[in-house]
Design a protein around this nucleic acid. Structure first.
Lengths: 348, 348
DNA sequence: CTGAAAGCGCTAACAG
DNA sequence: CTGTTAGCGCTTTCAG
């Protein structure tokens, strides 16, 4: 056990030369052993290993990649809305798992829907020469990534499609998911359905809104006089907006909320008005213990881990040289009935 | 907008030499401009900038760090139980925020409480020459980190204290938090309190268990015949264990659950037995919408973002050369009353 | 204010 | 099977 105080000047870090000297071999032989290359005798391997252990030597991968032929850094850059967000966490987890199998490390960063920081964060990844980029972007164009792409940095967009750039992407079936939610409410007889959505600058929010409106049109229900509220960026705003609509004239018999925090805000507003068992609610995106609420919350669940896995598979295929045309993979959503979405227009 | 198919052989990436040639200056001048060093005329700066823009040049920080005096990679390695876990996500977020202010990137990895992978993951960080390590470990000794520490890799342990190694750490006040929860139940008159805990190999689980037992002792309540169940590693196991205890002879009038998933398992078990309004429950660690359940779940809340911020502050202080003695920072917990913990022994 | 030379730690290409 | 030489892209040192 070391002292209770940090060791003063750090002890110098051994290099391959030190290992080579101690083992009495050439530096290239050490390199061979460290990288598991063939053509080294068992005896030599052992001598090198011993020297490595004695010195506690750790290979410097950054130095190696400088000269290495393919220039791979075995590092991925992941940009998500926020690493604290459960959806992003699940995506991250799946990517990390796939990356670990390839001895690849993951740099993660949060964008917080701040378009101004997007380019700076990605630039930081690029300066580190990541092999690939997995991105959830918010700015209005990703064309600035064109040259990085041409230089061999693979990239796949997650939960977003790139704008002004051709690239792979993996997204939830936002439009159909929202349509399914809407159809579910229509099937129960609802005609007065309110929509509460996230910021319209976010692509997925727009898609979900479109899915909602599509389905109404398909059913021949005019959306003209239905409450449609956008830009609900947090629970607080959502609660207020839903409460206002519920208290207004001609209140809706059902609600479709396009995002997690909006759904929770809606639940709170319904409770405050005592309407949680009389007004139907379907939310987009599942959340923990949604089944333990009263009523249980019916949701359109996404598959974040499937999205992460697909994104990882895609990027590694590209890194491995796949030159097939870009694809947009659409991951289906699932309707989970838990009670809130099955309330009839008359509150039964 | 580029083509719908990836560009065939990647176009070569420009280096400083290319920029220097195009700008008609020496390579060192480009270096000065890219790093914001002084002693370059405005005119020269502009010519370099123009060349950089024309070529879309990005500095290679890995190459630079090779020769750079302090050898800083501006990279941190973060090891958590799982990046998909909300506690870890909040810690990560806070660390990332502090890191961004210092232009430092964060490599994140999940350990999944698998002691065998711990050393391998950390070794991967070390091979990338991270400036610092922020770690949630599970193995029985971290003495293998001694040499990395002596060589100047800063490290702080989060949610854990290192074993066999002296280093900084930042943890929740697990023991007092658990004692507070127990005292809260004792104060309501409960004497028959059951404990349900996570795997005992996890340090925090042990601390919480100790806090529970401490407080009983302090109150003169024997824990000998109280139900104490450990090693509940998931919701399913917790549900079964709680259900079994509730159905057994002499069931408890109150429950203390030492972790998130255990708490949720307990909630489900109580519901299944219809006892959610008759048996008190206090859980360690808060979770989303705990206030929307019926009853609301009383918890001992941690401050993951405070923990992350403190850990980041600590590691950056060390990276900046702070040589003061190692400290263990203990972050207080907060009791949040929501109903489930305020049920009296007679179910009122 | 600017640039040439040396070399960071490693791997590629070769020669033995 | 092993070692030597060159040089990855950059920063340092030092001379202009």
């Amino acid at each position: 056990m070391s002292a209770q105080t940090p060791s003063s000047p750090p002890r110098p870090r051994p290099t391959m030369r030190h290992v080579a000297a101690l083992a009495g071999v050439g530096i290239k032989t050490v390199s061979r052993v460290m990288n598991g290359e063939p053509n080294v005798s068992e005896a030599t391997i052992k001598r090198v290993r011993d020297a490595v252990d004695r010195l506690d030597y750790e290979l410097d991968v950054n130095a190696g990649n400088l000269k290495r032929a393919n220039g791979r850094t075995l590092t991925l850059g992941l940009l998500v809305s926020s690493v604290a967000n459960p959806f992003a966490g699940a995506v991250h987890r799946a990517i990390e798992q796939a990356a670990a199998e390839r001895h690849t490390a993951v740099l993660a960063a949060s964008l917080d829907d701040d378009a101004d920081r997007e380019e700076a964060i990605i630039s930081a990844f690029l300066r580190r020469r990541v092999d690939g980029l997995i991105l959830t972007t918010v700015s209005t164009s990703q064309s600035y990534l064109g040259s990085a792409q041409e230089r061999g940095t693979s990239m796949v967009f997650v939960d977003r499609q790139p704008i002004g750039l051709a690239a792979d992407s993996v997204i939830s079936d936002n439009r159909n998911g929202a349509a399914t939610a809407t159809a579910h409410l229509l099937a129960r007889g609802h005609r007065r359905i309110a929509y509460f959505g996230d910021r319209t600058l976010i692509q997925t929010a727009n898609e979900r809104r479109s899915g909602f409106l599509d389905e109404l049109r398909r059913a021949g229900v005019s959306a003209l006089d239905l409450p449609v509220v956008d830009d609900l960026s947090d629970e607080e705003l959502a609660l207020e907006a839903v409460a206002r609509v519920l208290a207004g004239p001609n209140p809706p018999t059902a609600i479709f909320s396009s995002q997690n925090l909006v759904t929770i805000g809606a639940v709170k507003a319904l409770r405050q008005s005592g309407l949680q068992h009389r007004v139907a609610l379907v939310g987009f995106d599942d959340f923990p213990v949604a089944d333990l609420l009263d009523p249980g919350i019916t949701v359109i669940a996404q598959s974040p881990s499937a999205i992460g896995r697909l994104a990882a598979d895609r990027i590694f295929a590209r890194i491995d040289g796949d030159r097939s045309p870009f694809v947009n993979e659409v991951v289906p959503t699932t309707l989970i009935e838990r009670g809130s979405g099955e309330i009839a227009p008359d509150g039964k």
